[in-house]
Computed example of a mutant assay.
Amino acid sequence: MRAAVIDLGTNTFHLIIADLSDGTVRMLYKTTVPVLLGQGRINENMIIPEAFERGIKTLSAFKATIDQHQADVIKATATSAVRSAINGQAFVDEARDVGIEIEVITGDQEAAYIFDAVRATGVIKDTVLVMDIGGGSTEFIIGDAKGLLWKKSYNIGAARLMQAYFHSDPMSDADRSAIITVLDETLGELKSACTHYKPKALVGSAGAFESYAAMLNNGEEAKDIPTMPLDIASYRALSAHLIASTHAQRVDMKGLISLRVDMIVIAAILTSYVLDTTGVQALHLSTYDLKMGILHSLLK
């Protein structure tokens, strides 16, 4: 079976096409497009007209590519930006007109797919906390090699927090304190779950964690490997540097793609907060994320 998976994220749309046969995945094609569906008014639960148009044009181009590869199955899932938008259903309807049937998944479904993706890397040997920082939401999952133990999706994605609280360059202490206050007020259940399950490592799913890995490796991306360890001390030094930096300084940083130049500051605050409050002692990157979790669910 040849499958096409589309992940309609708040910041980026992803397309992967793979052959699923003999219980294996053979990747044929993959691309990522910075659609920025959450641009401008994500906290007002609105997809603005420019973002709406970019999204539909991208899906139309994806459909042409899928047709060229003669995929047997198309699985398209939308997450926070679409599920929370008052015009999200209109977007789904227009996507159907270009040949893409979108399933708007819940935060819990998103978290479960992410865990499946991370487990497929083989990184989970003991109890771990998985974190996926999206534009609209951030998912946390606790699990071990046997399966998922706890999960929750929070509407504290990087785009949401950036639009609400990132008002200075470099970020002011007041802006950072406001974000920390939101995290204190929001993540109580996560901290309780970590106290109960005692995860030994934090596994970051793709996205910002890929940027951390590249920046810690002199700009070299983690290519063709499903997982890699990240040194926590080196990450903490990088995080402090990112949070204190200006936009212009981040533009010139090796390994930081343009899409994440500003959102990486929010991601660093989120990641450091989780490390500080959960007590995990190890940090890993999983290059597999939601779309790979969906692909592996089709393989099953």
Rank of each mutant, 00 (worst) to 15 (best):
A174R: 14
L148P: 06
S172I: 01
I179K: 05
K125S: 12
N155W: 03
G204P: 02
L187M: 01
Y165A: 11
D126W: 11
T138N: 01
S211L: 06
C194M: 08
A174H: 14
G134A: 05
E139N: 11
E189L: 00
S205N: 04
L148S: 10
A213S: 15
G134D: 10
T181P: 11
S205L: 06
V128Q: 10
A164Q: 14
L129H: 04
D175P: 09
S172F: 00
M162F: 11
L183T: 04
S192C: 03
I142S: 06
A174C: 07
A174D: 13
G157P: 04
P199K: 12
A193S: 06
M171V: 11
P170C: 03
A201L: 05
T186H: 08
H196Y: 15
S177G: 14
L190W: 01
Y154S: 07
K146T: 13
K151T: 02
I133M: 02
Y197F: 15
L202F: 04
D184Y: 05
G147W: 02
I179W: 08
T195L: 12
A208H: 03
L129T: 11
L149Q: 13
T127H: 02
Q163C: 05
G135R: 09
Y154H: 13
K200G: 14
M131E: 06
G147R: 08
N155I: 06
V130C: 10
G157C: 06
Q163M: 09
K191R: 13
A213G: 00
S172P: 00
A193P: 10
S137T: 05
D173R: 14
G188Y: 04
L202K: 07
H167Q: 11
K191L: 10
A159I: 14
A193C: 03
V130E: 02
Y165W: 05
S172W: 07
S177E: 14
F209V: 12
Y197S: 08
G143W: 02
A214D: 04
M171Y: 06
M131S: 14
K151Q: 07
K152V: 03
S153T: 07
T186R: 15
S211W: 13
L190G: 03
L202I: 08
L183V: 02
C194Q: 05
D126F: 13
W150I: 09
A208Q: 08
R176H: 05
A201N: 02
D175Y: 13
G157K: 05
L129N: 05
R160G: 00
M131Y: 02
V130T: 05
S153N: 08
H196T: 13
D169V: 04
I133W: 09
G134Y: 03
K200I: 01
K125R: 14
K191V: 06
T127L: 08
A214F: 12
V128I: 00
E185L: 14
K146L: 11
A208S: 13
A201P: 06
N155A: 15
Y212A: 10
F140N: 09
F166V: 11
L183K: 01
V203G: 01
K200Q: 13
T181C: 09
R176N: 05
I180A: 08
